[in-house]
Design a protein around this nucleic acid. Structure first.
Lengths: 215, 215
DNA sequence: TCGTTTCCTGACCGTATGGTCAAAGTGAAG
DNA sequence: CTTCACTTTGACCATACGGTCAGGAAACGA
């Protein structure tokens, strides 16, 4: 944990805004702390400090540490689901999978903390979001597998196993968030520049699309 | 954390064996607990219970929780380094990268806990093994990049960015360990069978090798 | 057998953490 | 201004955790 600056907290304004603004600041701080320390290593005190609130105030908005954690995990899950819309209404794998990769790479750059929290949650056996895996994610996966299978049947790509293609998409894109520290270290300790991010996206896109015989 | 059985601990035997056997049992239990709970969530008591030893005995062999953790992380790192020998003395990418993928997929199956501990460590900013990243891993990476670049120059594969290929190799293979729980859930809650593992390995291998234009 | 080193372990300690609570502060409606 | 619901907060509590220690048990060499 480095000496990070305090998360910005805007002026409260109206009564309704107070709640929304404080919840937002808490969630933003929590996402960062959970990502950097894990659920067990994170402390409510640290989250409170980063959000610029007394610890007792956190428990006013979120009853328990687990409640707060659950909300953070749900957030990234919904962001990822949204990113998949491009998948469906695409004529073929080049557009569908290509844009999905781009979207997920963008999220890895803009929401690295959320990605890490998700990864941590799944690695620990998904104690909090197991039901999501068994319902929403399972349905989503089966839907996408059907789309990919259709593209295969239409001869638009090689007859690969759609399931393992999905795993490859998740693995390669999220790697840039979850292992961002390792990547940065191997990049002479400096974060990837805009140009390097474009190259990363293009590399992943090209290798995957060529890998499935779509280009 | 599910109600896991106790780690097997063989009979002590001679004086020298006692130390080796107990350290082995502790490390095995620690790997599992750190993987399932994270560093912050893991407790020495739980590791002790799983190793079948009193907590005070853990501190006899490992001074602190961090010492124990460091040893666990080093273990998986060395296992991965060993798996890379196949990379060097290969005539081309099909053999070199192909066998590297197979080796890393095998490790994901046999050492899922270690892989998770590594992932967790890197996600948290590598507080314990940062020096490894900056020395051993960086050197290793540069060496492999040189090999890949040679293959490209020899026309044995497409001119992709070697660095991003390495990231793809790490991401795709380790995904089967780190996100094993998610994969199992999407596999009707059942662990992958031998046949499914073979298919996973073949899928990753084929997609990657085709993706770099090696097949 | 005896002395010495290594190993074992229950009891204990200081600290940090998640969570509680009562009392005070504050904005808006009437 | 008064009222009332919403918000804020310092002080506090029970618990759990990492780590310590002293004394006993077991293995080993002579």
């Amino acid at each position: 944990m480095s000496g990070d600056a305090q998360i910005s907290r805007l002026k409260p304004g109206r009564r309704t805004d107070i709640r929304r603004e404080n919840e937002r600041a808490i969630l933003e701080a929590a996402e960062k702390v959970f990502a950097e320390a894990g659920f067990g290593g994170a402390t409510m005190q640290l989250i409170a400090d980063m959000a610029g609130l007394p610890k007792a105030n956190l428990h006013y908005y979120f009853a328990t540490k687990e409640d707060l954690y659950r909300r953070v995990v749900q957030q990234i899950f919904e962001i990822w689901l949204d990113a998949a819309t491009s998948f469906d209404d695409a004529p073929g794998p080049v557009e569908g999978i290509g844009s999905y990769i781009e979207a997920k790479m963008d999220i890895s750059r803009t929401h690295p903390h959320g990605s890490k929290v998700w990864a941590s949650e799944v690695m620990h056996g998904a104690p909090v979001i197991q039901d999501y895996l068994e319902t929403t994610l399972r349905d989503w996966t089966n839907g996408r597998i059907a789309v990919i299978q259709r593209w295969i049947d239409e001869g638009k790509m090689q007859p690969i196993n759609p399931r393992h293609l999905l795993y490859m998409l998740w693995a390669t894109t999220q790697h840039y968030a979850d292992f961002g520290h390792q990547i940065q270290t191997l990049n002479d300790g400096k974060p990837l520049t805009d140009k390097q991010w474009r190259e990363a996206k293009a590399s992943v896109r090209d290798m995957v699309l060529r890998g499935i015989g779509a280009i």
